[in-house]
Amino acid sequence: MNVTSLITEYNPFHNGHIYHINESRKISDADVVIAVMSGNFTQRGEASITNKFIRAAHAVKHVDLVVELPLKNSISFADDFALGGVRIAELLGSTHLVFGSESGDISALKQLYTDSRDNVNKDELSGLIKKGYSHPRALSKLLGSDDISGSNNILGLSYIRALETLDSRITPMTIKRQSNQYNEPDLSAGAFSSATSIRNSIMEGNLDAVKNFMPSDLADDILKNKAVSNADFFQTLKLIITHKSPKELREIYMMSEGLEHRLKSNVRGADTYDDFMHRIKTKRYTWTRLNRLMTCILLNITYSDMAAHDVQNINAVRVLAMNPTGRKYLKTLKDSDVEIITNVNKENSHHISDEIMATDIYNIAHNSAQNDFNTPVIID
């Protein structure tokens, strides 16, 4: 049996994702397709535009299972994100992992990973990063390869690294990304548009335009349930940063080089989230990096929390949604060592305490009563 996993965010779910699912099913000859999806906070350091339950309900119309990527992997760097996703894919007996990339060539990406692993001097890499280079740009300079420039290529290298780290037998495959780039801010003139451009248009109230690029019923759901962004948490963040001491802020994951002082000296004068971010942004710290830091502050994720998070110790999977094929497949795993959580209760909630907490905080902005205890697994 071929079981294909896709490590996803679906923020929001759109037509490009449907293309990815259909092509993945085809090239891997999948009997079962699983989406390992971020919860309410994502790898770019952004609150999801709508909650994980709504996203899962629409995704399961196209995949067979939607399971939740652990929070600490969802909000961290590409390597952590990939490692958590691959671990969940392993626990669910996946045979294939299919991801989108600008390259579309798995052999080239594997070779690029090998070159970066074997030929890059770590001191030179660190030196470039200290000069203000992003990690991908530094790698690209040292290897002389343009293939590192795409966001999905970079994530692809992390998936390949994670498979090697976990000594996985999962076969990686890739599909060439279609239409505009991952972080393109404007809607495409083609058939597909980036999640970034769709989010921007939704926040601008341009719902009619985005319906060309995503299921119209999902667009209606987002409008009905309120679109969420990091800006909705600014007052909460402002309170936390103001009242935590510099020592307490230094313990927050991704806080470094005295950045806590920069935050404290600028937060009181900022009126909005964007205003605050522009005040603290430097050449060294990208917008995405700072977004991730803000998410860690909001969720109180510390260095010690991340150090204690070993994906090898994950032995439970939270199922958000399934169709009849997914339900049938889950029954084949009942004798395995993995605990499958469909409905959350007192007995199993300790496995997903981070995700429960993140949902409760997310609901501050979403004005939703849906939480992990009162929302049963979605069945399509």
Rank of each mutant, 00 (worst) to 15 (best):
V319S: 04
E164Q: 14
L166G: 05
A89I: 11
M277E: 05
K110H: 04
E204V: 06
Q235K: 11
A195S: 14
I340R: 02
G100Y: 03
L69F: 06
T114E: 13
I297Y: 04
G144F: 11
G156Q: 05
Y182S: 14
A189L: 13
Y303D: 13
K281F: 05
D80C: 13
I75F: 04
F233E: 01
T359E: 06
I356R: 02
A231Q: 12
I241F: 03
N200F: 07
N121K: 05
T325D: 06
K281C: 05
H17D: 10
I160F: 02
P376W: 11
E355V: 10
H14S: 09
K238F: 08
M37F: 08
E90R: 10
Q235M: 14
A59W: 05
P185I: 05
I34R: 07
T174K: 04
K52H: 06
M277C: 04
V66F: 02
M357S: 13
D186T: 15
D167C: 14
N200M: 05
D271L: 11
N22L: 12
T165Y: 08
S48H: 12
V377A: 12
A35D: 00
I280W: 05
R55V: 00
L187F: 00
F192D: 04
E68K: 01
I364M: 15
N323I: 08
N152Q: 03
L237G: 04
D232Q: 01
H17W: 04
K283P: 04
G16M: 06
I160N: 00
V344L: 09
N291A: 07
R250N: 15
L333H: 08
A30T: 02
I75Q: 03
I27H: 00
G258H: 11
A78P: 08
P172R: 05
V210Y: 06
L139F: 13
A307T: 11
L155M: 04
S179Q: 06
H309S: 09
G132V: 14
D123G: 09
S140C: 01
A138Q: 03
L207V: 11
E248K: 15
M306N: 10
S304C: 06
T295E: 08
Q111R: 02
F276H: 07
N300Q: 14
N371Y: 01
E204S: 12
V338Y: 10
I170M: 07
Y113E: 01
R250H: 11
N374Q: 13
M357C: 02
S368W: 10
V36M: 09
S103V: 05
A47D: 06
F192W: 00
L142V: 09
N11K: 08
G190P: 00
D118W: 04
K264W: 02
S28T: 13
I341F: 11
L6N: 03
P185N: 12
G100M: 10
V60Y: 01
L299N: 02
S76C: 14
D79A: 15
N230H: 07
A321W: 07
Q111T: 02
I170Y: 00
I88K: 01
G205I: 00
V86Y: 03
A89T: 10
A308Y: 06
L290P: 09
N40Y: 05
K72D: 07
L320W: 08
K141S: 12
L330A: 03
D305L: 02
